[in-house]
Design a protein around this nucleic acid. Structure first.
Lengths: 165, 165
DNA sequence: CGCTTTCTTCAGAAACTTGTGAAGTTAAGG
DNA sequence: CCTTAACTTCACAAGTTTCTGAAGAAAGCG
């Protein structure tokens, strides 16, 4: 077993998980570095790491960490916190927050809806193509509402299963 | 108004829609050519085009059409049909089929679940990190079931609104 | 059975993306 | 107020991806 001194964790097993989960995220369209950083945060016991720790664990430059974190913060997958009285920053994956973000493809949905609405208008609502797009649009609007309701059900389910936060 | 002779459609308006919708798809992670081809199919009155038509409309080579269509077929976004007695192929976006495909991130979900399950095992279900991942895993399992139910509700809703297929 | 049309495969050029080192900025601590 | 630690920005090199033209394979048609 590969125990790094004093860590109490199998560093190699952690690394294997980080890389394999990151690979899945990449496949789903996330850029490589953000995916790796995110997986590293997810697998940390505190759910948080400093920039230096991430750089060391993943063998990447501070610049790469910086870029990855910017991406993750923008997409609300992680939050940044300054430890008071230090200039060290600490990046955290906040249980709830991030799958909210995942499902908040809302922004994406909204934009698709915008594009489709334009399409219906410019092709004409009375044309076959226009009708097809109107139906597609209706689907997205439907999904948008459904997702909100689903997340509410999840919160209830989660509290029952894992207890209150 | 830019009417191309005999088409009965404003070619420029169609092109604007195609490019702007494709851009949204690209932003969401779809490769460029598949996105453009898909948007072109969506905006056609028949919901179907031949390879040559697509090449001409989008100003791309037959090779590019071929590649894009392969991608779209693999991801079940379009189906290919041979017109009988011809070697011309025709690519079609089948109303239902494609948003089923969209929500059939199922494959993706399954793989994420696999990676997470491994993570829980290798980090230990009794560690804080293990617990966090177990909860994440539970979330994905929850979503998977919910999506199936949602699609059933959509089919009902759709039939009410747009009538039977 | 060979010609022709249509699609596919492939190698390579062009364009874009990504991660790095190095310089720059910000803010704590003396 | 100067030093120094921590993060960010930037230009560029390396590595990918993407599209094309050209050659190749499949299949109708005469």
């Amino acid at each position: 077993m590969t125990e790094s001194a004093g860590s109490g964790r199998d560093a190699e097993a952690v690394s294997r998980f980080v890389e394999s989960f990151a690979a899945q995220l990449v496949e789903a369209g996330m850029p490589r570095m953000p995916a790796r950083v995110f997986a590293a945060l997810l697998s940390s016991d505190e759910g948080a790491r400093t920039s230096a720790e991430l750089g060391e664990q993943l063998r990447i430059s501070p610049a790469a960490v910086s870029g990855a974190v910017r991406y993750l913060a923008q997409t609300h997958m992680v939050s940044r916190e300054r430890e008071p009285g230090s200039r060290r920053e600490r990046y955290r994956v906040h249980g709830d927050q991030w799958y909210e973000a995942l499902t908040n493809r809302e922004t994406v949905l909204k934009r698709w809806e915008g594009a489709l609405r334009e399409g219906v208008t410019s092709l004409g609502a009375d044309t076959p193509a226009g009708r097809r797009m109107a139906e597609t649009l209706a689907f997205f609007e439907f999904v948008e509402v459904e997702i909100v309701q689903m997340m509410e059900r999840w919160r209830v389910h989660r509290e029952k299963t894992f207890g209150p936060e």
